[in-house]
Design a binder for these strands. Structure first.
Length: 122
RNA sequence: GGAGUUCGCCAGACAGUCGCCGCUUCACUUCGGUGGAGGGGAGGAAAGUCCGGGCUCUACAGGGCAGGGUGCCAGAUAACGUCUGGGCGGCGCGAGUCGACGGAAAGUGCAACAGAGAGUAUACCGCCUAAGUAUCUUCGGAUACCGGUAAGGGUGAAACGGUGCGGUAAGAGCGCACCGCGCGGGUGGCAACAUUCCGUGGCGAUGGUAAACCCCACUCAGAGCAAGACCAAAUAGGGUCCCAUUAGGCAUGGCCCAUGCUGGGACCGGGUAGGUCGCUGGAGGUGUAUGGUGACGUACAUCCUAGAUGAAUGGCUGUCUACGACAAAACCCGGCUUAUCGGUGAACUCCUCAC
């Protein structure tokens, strides 16, 4: 596995997918700017979905920026992540972060997620 | 050179690399896709959702009421609350710019404070008068009431033409001249409207407010692409027909018994999850010619320029520079409004200097 693509298999595609994560949250990674919910998906790869509400990030441009940077980080780190469905929920104030701050935030969250998943499986 | 007005244009660029979403094409394919190549991939406001239209479904013989919208005139347009030209009125030396700009001669209502009086306007001060009544009297007259007055003062955003002369007890369009205003006619203009034309009216005609009700004219069916159309899974569920009816089928099992579950088949329409279409070639852009003051129209040529759907258009690195604002499609167009870093082009106006 040396590919760093982002095909549809790595995304949460339907409302049903999202609902399953909400209903069976087994991992939570809270942070000041984001909240990550996750649940094992039984596949051999992780999947990613976003919930960025208009209420928390008003401008579409900023919502897109946050999603794209988080997604890019996910793409590059996908092989370091456990096979779980990940739901990233944005909180207020995340749109004020700079690009490199977002990248750092993402990295930090991935490692915390990895640790928690390891604990849960043992 | 400085200050300004109007109309446009651009919205970081280039290279490398890792990705994402359509399209075209080639190869392979287990028909699900996979790989290669090529090409495309947010805006001037994509925004607010304030108007208008297309499109879709629902409703609809025709007419009326209610309610909403618009509101100087003419035109443009698919249509508009938009645009163009014109008129009128404000602002500006000017280029220009701004204006909910119909009706107060149908009715109802409203106007704080101040002020005597604010709509059939008004007598507080002042001015005038001395006939009448009364008081005083130096017997001349003085004063109060009554009466006249809208010139002057004062209040107010606003007090019902202005100036002058005459006139008068004092005054007053009471009369006259000029100016202003109204009405009728003429003239110019499609019209709004204008008028250095003619006539006429003393001007309490017709104060303001219609973003108060209202009147008048024109105009408006409702919902919206999550519209709507199609395909369509399930141990789901419905109908019709046929076949079975103590059989058959299914599951466990190598088979029988057994146990458990259950009628079977065909056809039909409805339809959830999900999927496909709608979905971008259009009231389209550009150029030339042509009609028009112009908005715009017509003809010909030429170009194809996002189409996602948990939702693509991005990340990283380097170079350049003053270094980037406001902000991202979600059916599509025409506008309006609001936000905005800077750069740049053209035309025009005013001032200053030089010649």
């Amino acid at each position: 596995m040396s590919e760093f693509k982002y095909p549809r298999e790595l995304r949460l595609l339907t409302g049903g997918d999202f609902q399953q994560v909400f209903d069976n949250v087994s991992l939570k990674v809270p942070d000041r700017h984001i909240l990550i919910l996750a649940r094992p998906n039984g596949l051999d790869h992780p999947r990613l979905g976003f919930v960025i509400s208009k209420k928390n990030v008003r401008h579409a441009v900023k919502r897109n920026r946050v999603r794209r940077i988080m997604r890019e980080s996910f793409r590059l780190n996908q092989h370091n992540l456990p096979p779980v469905d990940i739901l990233i929920m944005a909180r207020k104030g995340i749109d004020e972060l700079e690009k490199d701050e977002l990248h750092r935030l993402a990295k930090k969250c991935w490692s915390r997620l990895r640790k928690k998943a390891k604990q849960a499986s043992t």
